[in-house]
Design a protein around this nucleic acid. Sequence first.
DNA 1: CATATATTTTAGTTTATACTAAATACTGAT
DNA 2: ATCAGTATTTAGTATAAACTAAAATATATG
Lengths: 127, 127
Amino acid sequence: MPADLLAVVASPRRREILRLLWDGERTAGELHEAMPDITFGAVSLQLKVLREAGVVERRADGQARVYRVRHEALGDLAPMLEQMWGDALWRLKLRAELDETRRGPRPGRGRTRRSHGGRRRQRRKPS
Amino acid sequence: MPADLLAVVASPRRREILRLLWDGERTAGELHEAMPDITFGAVSLQLKVLREAGVVERRADGQARVYRVRHEALGDLAPMLEQMWGDALWRLKLRAELDETRRGPRPGRGRTRRSHGGRRRQRRKPS
DNA sequence: CATATATTTTAGTTTATACTAAATACTGAT
DNA sequence: ATCAGTATTTAGTATAAACTAAAATATATG
């Protein structure tokens, strides 16, 4: 088990990509649609990291490039990621239910951190 | 499992510390003795990261601070680390045996090629 | 060929991390 | 209180990573 696999999956952005690809393949463009907060180029760079680590595979389909996860390359990390996502979904569901029962006008958690400085420019589609 | 645990163990330096603490506790000073390539302060900073992630625990003993691993906090990562270290040791042992057999039969002075990473003992000091 | 689409790569910037050196804090002993 | 030993924290620096905008590459189509 290569140690650098840990570094690969330690990145939240790369885990986001893996999550999107986990149950089926997608093109680079589809991935970017699901992550509109960063540019297409940034997605492509992370895909390159994942690919060079052997974690995803690429295949050409016309002008598109289709990516898929190589689950077997992740070894014991694969079930860990699944568990992590499962837990996250579960907690999200729990919190939703909590807010539901509260039924108040304020689901307001006190301080919601907008830690990214707010400036977020998005690549615009050519019109 | 908290996602940031992955980032914690993704650092080779922190894994080195975990490896040193894995089978028993040590003081900060003892840890630094085992890692003379960085300063005491750097060791302390990494210990802080590990401690804030809940991965190690600290206890006072006189003027020293004794650290130990909280294996349970690592969850499924614990066996993964053990496996990783096991593999590494195994490969190291294999290489040692290879060198041994090479040295045994004929210690002749022909230069035996080694793969990268091997330090060759200097035959003589340049004077 | 020219053009449009889809993606990758490059160059430069920002941000995060690891580190060093020095200062500070804590502990036990005198 | 002061000193010596041990550890932490601070301030500053160097390096690596993530990102953006733009240029470049590749592929299909008219």
